[in-house]
Amino acid sequence: MSIFDVKVCLGTNPLPVLSEQRIANQTSKPLAIDMQNNHNIDVKKSTEGKIPMDQDTATKVKAFEYFTNHLVDWYKEQNHEQEFSDNDLSKLKVLKIHFFVCASRASEKEDGLLDVFDNFWAMPYGHVESDVYTWLDKLDYIRIDNYKLDIVKEYLDDYFLDLDSDIKKRIDESFVAVKSTNAKLVNYMAVDLVELSHTWYSWKSMYKLARSFKKYSMKIPKEIIKSENKIYSLKGV
C-alpha cells in the first residue's frame, strides 16, 4: 500500500474513488456516487431539496442515525479516558464499521440488517452502502467528515419513536454480536478496517468482477454476504 493509499484510507482524501485517474484528480469536494454508471455527482446538487427523500430512504437514513448513536456509545466505552471530540470516526471508518455491523447477524436463513441497508457495493476501499453515503453529509444531529464525527446536537428523547421497533432491535442485536466477537474493532484505524473488509469473500469476488469489466465498483448481492464467513479481526491489530 502506497503512502497515498494510506492517506486516503485515513480520511485525508474524500471517498469513494472510482478510477485510478480520479484518484489522481480528486479534490476536497464531497462526492456521492452514481454506482451504476460510475459517474461522480455533486452531493449538494443531488440532495439539497431537489430530490425528495422517499419513505424507504427516510427509514434507512434514520436507521443509520440510530446506528451512529450506538457507534458513539461503543467508542466512548472503549475510550473512556479520552475526550470524544478527539475521536477518529471518519467517513471511511464509520462506513466500514457500518458494513461489519450490518453483516454480523446475516446468515443463509436471516437477512440481519441487509434488508434495511440493501445497497452495498464493492469499491476500492471495501464495502459501501451507496444510499447511506449519498446522505452522509445531510444529517441534522451529527457531522462526519474525513477525520472525525462531531455531535451537532443531542437526539431528542422521542426522535427514534417512529423508527420500526424491529429495526431498532436488530441494530441493537447486531452491535452486541460484533462487540462480543471483537470489542476493540471500533479502535481499529480506518486503514486496518479497509484491509479487514478486503478479506471478505463478498468484496474480493465482486471487486474482481468489477475489474474484469474495467470498472471500480460493483453491487454486491446480499446472498453472498449472508452465506460468507464473517471475519472481524486482523492478526497483529
Rank of each mutant, 00 (worst) to 15 (best):
A106H: 01
V43Y: 05
C102T: 03
I41C: 12
Q78I: 07
A58Y: 05
K45Q: 14
I51L: 10
D86Y: 09
H39Y: 11
H80M: 09
N69H: 08
T27H: 11
Q55P: 00
T27Y: 10
K29S: 11
Q82L: 13
S46F: 15
N87E: 06
V61I: 15
S28H: 07
S85V: 14
A32Q: 06
E110I: 09
Y66H: 02
F100V: 03
K44T: 08
I97A: 03
H39R: 15
N79T: 06
N40W: 15
S46G: 09
D86I: 11
I33Y: 11
E77K: 12
D56F: 12
I41H: 11
V72S: 10
K60Y: 04
V94R: 07
C102F: 00
P52C: 02
Q78V: 03
Q55C: 01
A32C: 11
D54K: 06
H98K: 02
M53S: 12
F84I: 04
H70P: 00
H70W: 05
T68E: 10
P30C: 04
V94P: 05
C102Y: 00
K76D: 02
K109A: 12
Q55S: 12
A32K: 11
M35H: 08
Q36M: 11
A106Q: 00
K76F: 05
K76G: 02
N69T: 04
K29Q: 12
T57W: 06
T68G: 04
E83R: 13
L95W: 10
H80R: 13
F67W: 00
F67C: 04
F67I: 02
F84Y: 07
D42P: 04
A103K: 01
K29R: 10
H39Q: 15
P52V: 06
H70T: 03
K76I: 14
E81K: 14
K96C: 08
F99C: 03
K60F: 05
Y66N: 00
P52K: 04
W74D: 07
D34L: 03
W74I: 01
T47R: 15
K93V: 01
T27S: 13
A58L: 14
K60T: 06
A106N: 02
L92K: 09
H98M: 14
T68A: 11
N87T: 06
F100Q: 13
G49D: 13
I51D: 06
I41Y: 07
F64E: 00
K91G: 05
F67Y: 08
Q78P: 04
D88H: 09
S46I: 15
